[in-house]
Design a protein around this nucleic acid. Structure first.
Length: 545
RNA sequence: AGGGGUGUCGCCAAGCGGUAAGGCACGGGAUUUUGAUUCCCGCAUUCGUAGGUUCAAAUCCUGCCACCCCUGCCA
């Protein structure tokens, strides 16, 4: 007996116990339509479907739901595969609705033969008009009672290309008076002369989602078809197809709430618009909530999966705060990211009592939290840079960092005292003149001086100039409601710093994330051929509280 | 009386008749050469609401309220 962690697994257990399905046959599928890139919302579905597969030792296919050739592209299919690979899920097979077009067609003929479907000559407008409303029943099509023979002949002619687009369609014969509008003789096949990215011009009729999906599920051996809440009303139709066609065992559709993240723009339509109008650099722009965007940002796949697991599965419409996601990212990065030093806004510091040409190496912890501590050497010298934010001309109370006549520790090195401030012509701080305490060297500090502030620094002898960027998210704040997306973008765009980092960060070939002391988590990224450092997520900062 | 759903802490979310798990956030304290991390401690006498059944209800029943989805030849 498998311990369920959500209501879907409870249902699966019930189906196993009741003998509906055998425990070794559990199968799900991840069913995106290849009409866009996967985003963080899909990650929830991915984790759910593959989670069930792993838990029940079952199967899970990547099923591309390509029944609408006018929206779908191979580019999207390729991107979807890459994203799933990145997340580390392995599917048992890649399948497409289009793989089953012939089979679906046969099932359609079967429905006709069973008297469950008819060819309708009404225009889309007429069908819409006769559908009735939420409170009034619809009117039956005048073509509803055509003979099986006539329907079969007409449907075959539809396939053969005898009729223009939209002039005829195949409809399920269910109930025009049903309170569920999806059951009012829904269209299950349409005529559409559009080149399909996989089947080309082989077909000029295409099955609709409601008809194709249950058939494809069944053909693949799917036992549990997990989808989002808006398909609840379609379940009776899903079941109708399975029952009329005699599917055994009939796949069970179970709905769950889709992921909403507070203020995060996730609509495929808007994301596509941003890409197309050049507001972002592409689907993989680090500001995008797409999986490829998150990957570019430096979000570890493990952190994303952890997030999906932690938010849980339910049927309640909910909105998860982005801080939850960020907490998961921080938690992972805290364990895995190497520490490094960097200054986003360099401020020159001259250590007046340090010899001009002397340098020395100090030991720096790669990650203080790891069990087997590793250290690496960092060069210290007379002139260094600290972050401008680590010095204050007018320090508030309880300010721990550098101020005039105050002491602060340079991480892994010496304690320094700020003796003097050099201003430029405009009255801005240009440089600090400090003195170091020779006996305060990290590791064997005999100075007896206690400082609360520890700041990062880089030596001018080794510092590498690099552009450092903080990327915002594409937010849909009330503040920006009604504004054009390009305007929202400007406000949530990119903050650029001309920073300096220790060479270690730039020397590594891989793109491992770093935690810059007291700053945040960063990774190297190439934007239009230029190497930059971009922020993955900021450090939790209690200083401002 | 259109149908289908959902309502448990600021945000997720367990709970399935025996007297409110956990996480994020938050508040307090300790340790810390990252104001990070880590570590303690606190954080719903109450489960949308009003009744009812029961020795006992978030869990069962009834009524009300709120929110979401459905009138594509989209998925």
């Amino acid at each position: 007996m498998i311990e369920p962690t959500n209501f879907i697994e409870q249902f699966i257990n019930e189906d196993i116990e009741s003998g509906k399905v055998s425990s070794d046959s559990i199968q799900t599928r991840f069913p995106p339509e290849p009409n866009g890139y996967l985003h963080i919302g899909h990650a929830k579905s991915l984790c759910l479907n593959f989670g069930v597969k792993e838990k029940y030792n079952g199967k899970c296919n990547l099923f591309l739901d390509d029944t609408n050739p006018s929206k779908e592209k191979a580019e999207y299919e390729d991107a979807i595969k890459k994203d799933i690979e990145w997340l580390g899920f392995s599917y048992d097979a890649v399948t497409h609705a289009s793989d089953y077009y012939e089979k679906i067609y046969e099932f359609a003929e079967k429905e006709i033969e069973l008297g469950n479907a008819f060819v309708c000559d009404m225009t889309p407008e007429e069908i819409s008009k006769n559908r009735g409303t939420l409170t009034e029943p619809g009117k039956e099509s005048p073509f509803r009672n055509r003979s099986v023979e006539e329907n079969l002949k007409l449907f075959r002619e539809m396939r053969a290309g005898k009729y223009p687009d939209g002039s005829k369609c195949l409809r399920a014969k269910i109930d025009m008076a049903s309170p569920n509008i999806n059951m009012r003789d829904p269209v299950i096949y349409r005529i559409l002369r559009e080149t399909h990215y996989r089947t080309g011009d082989k077909w000029c009729i295409y099955p609709m989602y409601d008809f194709a999906h249950p058939i494809c599920d069944y053909m693949q051996g799917v036992t549990h078809s997990l989808c989002t809440l808006e398909f609840e009303d379609h379940r009776p139709l899903y079941d109708w197809v399975g029952i009329t066609l005699g599917f055994k065992p009939k796949p069970r559709q179970i709905e769950f709430a889709r992921l909403n993240v507070t203020n995060l723009v996730m609509s495929k339509r808007y994301l596509k618009k941003l890409v197309e109008d050049g507001s972002v650099d592409g689907w993989d722009d680090p500001r995008m909530p797409t999986l490829t965007g998150l990957r570019a940002r430096g979000v570890p796949a493990e952190a994303l999966k952890d997030f999906c697991g932690r938010i849980g599965i339910s049927k309640a419409n909910s909105e998860v705060q982005i801080s939850y996601f960020e907490a998961c990212v921080r938690e992972y990065l805290n364990i895995h990211a190497e520490r490094a030093m960097a200054v986003l806004k360099p401020l020159k510091v001259r250590i007046t009592n340090y010899p001009e040409d002397k340098t020395e190496e100090v030991d720096f912890d790669v990650n203080p939290n790891e069990e087997e501590k590793r250290t690496r050497k960092i060069l210290f010298s007379k002139t260094i840079y600290i972050d401008a934010d680590d010095f204050s001309l007018a320090p508030p109370p309880k300010y721990f960092r550098l101020k005039k006549d105050g002491y602060v520790r340079l991480k892994s090195a010496y304690i320094i005292k700020c003796d003097d401030i050099v201003f430029d012509d405009d009255g801005n701080v240009k440089e600090l003149l400090c003195s170091y305490v020779p006996e305060s060297r990290s590791g064997n500090d005999t100075s007896g001086i206690k400082v609360k502030g520890v700041i990062q620094w880089v030596s001018d002898k080794t510092a590498v100039d690099v552009e450092i960027r903080k990327y915002g998210y594409l937010l849909n704040d009330e503040e920006y409601a009604g504004q054009d997306f390009s305007e929202r973008m400007n406000k949530n765009s990119v903050t650029v710093f001309s920073g300096k980092v220790e060479p270690y960060v730039m020397e590594n070939k891989d793109e491992r994330p770093y935690q810059f002391i007291r700053t945040g988590y960063f990774k190297r990224l190439k934007v239009k051929g230029k190497e930059i450092l971009s922020e993955i997520v900021s450090l939790k900062d209690n200083f401002n509280k």
